[in-house]
C-alpha cells in the first residue's frame, strides 16, 4: 500500500469535506488502503504507544502454511463414532458450550443427507448415503456471503481463505447469520460460561452478544497442528491446501466423486464430501 501520511491526510480531508467521514471516503476511493490507514497511530496511541522501541511481530515459523485451506470429509470412513469424536474434540478445544434448546451453539454437528444437501433430493439414492449422518460445519467459502454483509469487518476472509471471526469487534447484529446459507453460525444469546462442561484454559470462551463459528482451528494451524476435528476423526476428515495439486486432499478429490453443499449459490464452499 504505497500511501504516505501526507497523501492520506489530503484524501481524508477531501472525503471528510464530502461529509462521509475520512475513513469512509478513503475506503471508497482506494479500497483496501484503509488497512494501511488503520495502522497509523491514533492520538491515543501517540500518548500510549502500542509497542516499545524496535519490537516487531511475525508469524510462528512452525505454522502450517497454505494458499487455500480446505477440508475433505470421506463418507466411507466417517462413522458416527468418528464424527462424535471429532465434534467432541472441537467442542473441548474451543470451549463450545452445550446450551439446551433452540438458542444453542454449534461449530460442527451431525445432520441428515437431505438437510445438508436439500437440492440433491433423490428418493432412490443409495441408502448408505441417504441414511448417512453428515458433518455440517462452516464451509469457509471462497465467496462468503457472511463477510459480504458484516457491517464492521468483524468477520473477514484471511489470505489463506479462512473465514475468521473477530469477537472483539462483533456488534451482534446477526446479519451474518441471515447471510449464511448453511446455518453455520451461532449467536451467544446468553453468557456461555455456565454451559461449558470442562474449560480448556488455553482458548478463550465467548461473551454474550457475539456471533461465533468454526475457524478451521486457526489457533492450531498457527503452531503447526492440524484442526482438532481432523486429528480426532481417524482419517475421515482430511485437511489441506486446495491450491496445492500435490496435496493429499487434492489426490482424494481426484480419486473419488465429491459433492459440496449448495454449490449453485456461488459461494464456492471449501468443504468437500467424498460419497
Amino acid at each position: 500500500m504505497g500511501v504516505d501520511r501526507r497523501q492520506f491526510l489530503k484524501l481524508a480531508g477531501i472525503s471528510a469535506a464530502f461529509g462521509l467521514g475520512g475513513s469512509v471516503g478513503f475506503q471508497l476511493l482506494r479500497p483496501g488502503a484503509l488497512d494501511a490507514a488503520e495502522r497509523m497511530p491514533t492520538p491515543y496511541q501517540m500518548v500510549f504507544p502500542k509497542s516499545q522501541g524496535n519490537s516487531e511481530v511475525m508469524p510462528n515459523p512452525k505454522a502450517l502454511k497454505g494458499r487455500r485451506w480446505g477440508m475433505v470429509i470421506d463418507m466411507r470412513k466417517l462413522t458416527v463414532e468418528k464424527a462424535r469424536a471429532a465434534i467432541q474434540a472441537c467442542n473441548y478445544y474451543h470451549n463450545v458450550p452445550t446450551i439446551p434448546g433452540k438458542q444453542n451453539i454449534k461449530w460442527i454437528w451431525l445432520t441428515g443427507y437431505t438437510n445438508a444437501f436439500p437440492e440433491v433430493e433423490n428418493p432412490f439414492a443409495d441408502p448408505a448415503i441417504k441414511n448417512a449422518r453428515f458433518i455440517a460445519m462452516c464451509n469457509h467459502c471462497d465467496n462468503p456471503p457472511c463477510v459480504r454483509v458484516c457491517p464492521t469487518k468483524a468477520t473477514f476472509q484471511r489470505e489463506d481463505g479462512i473465514v475468521m471471526m473477530d469477537m472483539h469487534r462483533c456488534i451482534g447484529c446477526r446479519f451474518c447469520m441471515a447471510g449464511c446459507p448453511y446455518g453455520s453460525r451461532s449467536f451467544n444469546f446468553r453468557d456461555p460460561r455456565p454451559f461449558i462442561k470442562k474449560e480448556y484454559p488455553k482458548y478463550p470462551t465467548r461473551t454474550k452478544g457475539v456471533v461465533e463459528k468454526c475457524t478451521f482451528c486457526s489457533e492450531r494451524l498457527a503452531v503447526g497442528k492440524l484442526p482438532a476435528c481432523a486429528e480426532a476423526s481417524g482419517g475421515a476428515m482430511v485437511f489441506g491446501d486446495v491450491d496445492d495439486a500435490g496435496s493429499e486432499l487434492r489426490q482424494l478429490l481426484r480419486s473419488r466423486y465429491s459433492i459440496r453443499r449448495k454449490p449453485n449459490l456461488g459461494t464456492h464452499p471449501q468443504v468437500y464430501y467424498l460419497v
Binding site: G21, S23, V24, Q27, L34, C150, P151, T152, K153, A154, R169, C170, I171, G172, C173, R174, F187, N188, K208, G209, V210, V211
Partner: peptide
C-alpha cells in the same frame, strides 16, 4: 444488537 455498546464500530470500521 447483541453488543449495543459497540454500535459505533459501524462507523469506526466502515464497510
Amino acid at each position: 444488537l447483541g453488543k449495543p455498546t459497540r454500535i459505533l464500530n459501524v462507523m469506526l470500521h466502515p464497510t
